[in-house]
Amino acid sequence: MATYGRGGRWTMTDRGQPALRQTPTTFQVGPSSLRWEGGKLIVEIDELAWPHMHRLKGRVTVTPSAVTDVELPLKADGSHVWRPFAPSSEIEVDLNQPGWHWTGHGYFDANFGIHALEDDFSYWTWGRFPTHDNGAYCFYDATVRDGSELAVGLHFGADGTVEVIDAPPRTRFRRSLWQVRRETRADPGYVPHQVHDMLDAPFYCRSTVRTKVFGEEMVGVHEALDLNRFASPWLKPMLAVKVPRRRGWRFAE
């Protein structure tokens, strides 16, 4: 769970198999969970933001305009898959801090894989840009360690329909504060630019970015991931500060 802006918090805790419960409509890890209920995705959060030891608790409700059946293989062998469940959604946020109660526009997706990302990829960039008609463009570009390249552009309609598009060119723009290379798709002659910094790490950057695609200017969420940096031996020990392990957690009977 990540919140941004003044007082923002980030929490991610590793837990063992005894902390997992799953049904066709629910997924629970420790005290936090996701469940589908009446066409809405209900996310219940109850975590400690480490190392601040601040409790992050509350609910996020995601109401998709439609749920897609798209599964995009990120490698030819299908070992990594991107699943854009709901590229356009309405969200309601109700968390335990002043100002963390609001409604707005959002999306819901997930990645699945059977290998460590740094073993199969050296770099990737992704962006989702909502359109004026409540649809969205998504761009996924990656450099695979076998020498191949992933370059995918999709347009999602508000009704969940999807179309593969010939995306405009990859266009570089200003690097992150940690000098992570950034690029996204943009019409020729247009240079994308960051609107708001969300998360800046030595190997990863997430931000809102303005670009122009097929003549329409849009602001969307963008991420860039340098997996060569992530794989370096000096970096991974630093992650233990942000991703603590909670061994022996059990559900109350």
Rank of each mutant, 00 (worst) to 15 (best):
A186L: 01
L56N: 05
D166L: 01
Q28K: 12
V162M: 15
V191P: 00
T125R: 03
P64V: 11
A201V: 11
V43E: 11
H193G: 02
H155R: 15
V213D: 01
F121P: 09
R35E: 11
T25K: 07
F214G: 00
G99Q: 06
Q179L: 13
D77T: 04
L34E: 10
V241Y: 12
A158C: 05
D200A: 14
S148W: 00
G220C: 05
H222A: 04
R245G: 01
F121N: 03
D120N: 10
D197Y: 04
T13F: 06
Q97Y: 08
I114H: 07
R15A: 09
D109R: 04
G248W: 04
M198A: 12
P233A: 15
T11W: 08
D119L: 07
K242L: 08
E47C: 06
R59F: 01
H155P: 05
F27Q: 11
Y107F: 13
P233L: 13
S122W: 05
R15F: 01
G153I: 02
E118S: 15
R206T: 04
E253L: 11
R55H: 12
E37P: 06
P168K: 02
F121S: 03
T143Y: 10
H193R: 12
A158Y: 07
Q194D: 02
H105Y: 12
E71H: 09
L34P: 03
P237H: 09
R145I: 07
K57F: 09
T23S: 15
L20G: 02
V209Y: 01
T131W: 03
G58S: 07
R6W: 05
D166M: 01
L227S: 02
A151N: 15
P87I: 09
P130W: 03
G106T: 09
P168W: 03
A116L: 13
K236C: 03
P64L: 01
T171I: 00
E118C: 02
I114C: 09
P237Q: 13
A201I: 09
M53L: 11
P244H: 00
V180I: 13
L235R: 03
G104V: 03
S79H: 10
D120S: 13
R172G: 12
H222P: 00
W100K: 04
G39S: 03
R210I: 04
G160S: 08
R170W: 04
N228W: 05
A49W: 04
R145H: 03
H155E: 13
D46S: 12
W126E: 11
F139P: 02
P202A: 08
K236S: 11
F156Q: 03
L34K: 12
S232A: 15
V144L: 14
W249S: 10
T208P: 00
E163Y: 08
T125S: 11
E149F: 13
A186S: 14
H105W: 06
R174D: 15
I114D: 10
E118V: 00
P64Q: 04
H196T: 13
T125W: 01
G135D: 10
R182Q: 14
